[in-house]
Design a binder for these strands. Structure first.
Length: 283
DNA sequence: ATAGGCACCTGGTGGC
DNA sequence: TGCCACCAGGTGCCTA
């Protein structure tokens, strides 16, 4: 479930557990995720103090006092969970290991961070903190949707030359960072825009409507994650994995939620991915 | 430069 | 119960 809001929820969940704390040990249970883990990752993490936990798009960036930054991506199925054993006395205070627990990080505080990812589309790498933004995985990413760089003028210019459907353009991480299939569908529904419309043909007025809606959809999802976070952690420590009710995503054949609209939500495929929308409400 | 399709991998669901 | 097709929150890479 990791789009920007989920990744931000995870960041907020692990940040207080990591920042200012020292890594005691790291257990890596296989050689790779999507790519091999970086050389000597365990040794490079061990004994390091975490100075800051940041997010860029769907990447979590864990800065270390060594001048290196641990980059984490959750792919499609990545999960991070947190558990605690403050005195470091009882291993059973941590949940039993589960299938696909690929990386386990134990902090000096007794906290344990587990990275679990069945499909292994996720990734980890170690970068020089000073030049992290120039890393190939990060350098071409567009503006953060919740930051000043994502505004109607800039986005209008960015999609001006885009011949692809607007849905596809919104998923292009070079144009705007962090959006994924769910929140693009949701934002386009709320904006009343047909996902099949060509990006380059979008009027200035519609861009001005869409941009704040994208922000709202993401902000609300982060809020929902944040508010669910505490309760959920009490349960089993899973972060970024919360219930959410969507207007269109995953609702093919169900009634459109617009009052007075009698249409059913449709599913089409655009560049290989499902798009959910209402034909009546989205033009 | 841009657009489209494939690939990577595991697991869940629904039909026969 | 088994087998099969299809679906899934992402994105790098290859081809035109």
């Amino acid at each position: 479930m990791p789009e920007l809001p989920e990744v931000e929820t995870v960041r907020r969940g692990i940040s207080p557990v990591l920042e200012g704390q020292t890594i005691d040990s790291v257990q890596v249970n296989r050689p790779d995720l999507r790519w091999p883990f970086p050389e000597r990752m365990v040794e490079r993490l061990k004994g390091r103090r975490v100075t800051q936990v940041r997010r860029r798009s769907k990447y979590i960036l864990v800065d270390l006092d060594s001048g290196e930054t641990l980059l984490i991506h959750l792919g499609m199925s990545g999960r991070i969970s947190v558990s605690n054993d403050p005195l470091g006395l009882f291993a059973h205070n941590h949940p039993a290991a589960e299938k696909h627990d690929h990386v386990v990080i134990d902090m000096h505080s007794g906290a344990r961070i587990i990275y679990n990812d069945p499909r292994r589309f996720g990734a980890m790498d170690l970068l020089d903190t000073a030049t992290a933004a120039e890393h190939p995985l990060l350098r071409d990413i567009g503006p953060e949707p919740l930051g000043n760089g994502f505004n109607p003028e800039a986005f209008y210019t960015a999609i001006r030359t885009r011949n692809s459907p607007l849905k596809t353009a919104l998923l292009d991480q070079k144009l705007v960072a962090g959006l994924g299939n769910i929140y693009v569908c949701e934002a386009l529904f709320r904006a009343g825009i047909d996902p099949q419309r060509k990006a380059k043909n979008l009027s200035k007025a519609r861009v001005e409507k869409l941009v704040p809606i994208v922000r709202d959809v993401l902000s609300e999802a982060i809020e929902a994650g944040g508010s669910t976070l505490k309760d959920y952690r009490k349960a089993d420590g899973e972060l970024g994995y919360f219930q959410h009710s969507f207007d269109v995503y995953g609702r093919e054949g169900e009634a459109c939620k617009t009052s007075g609209c009698d249409q059913l939500i449709r599913r089409i495929v655009q560049s290989g991915r499902s798009t959910f929308f209402c034909r009546q409400c989205q033009r």
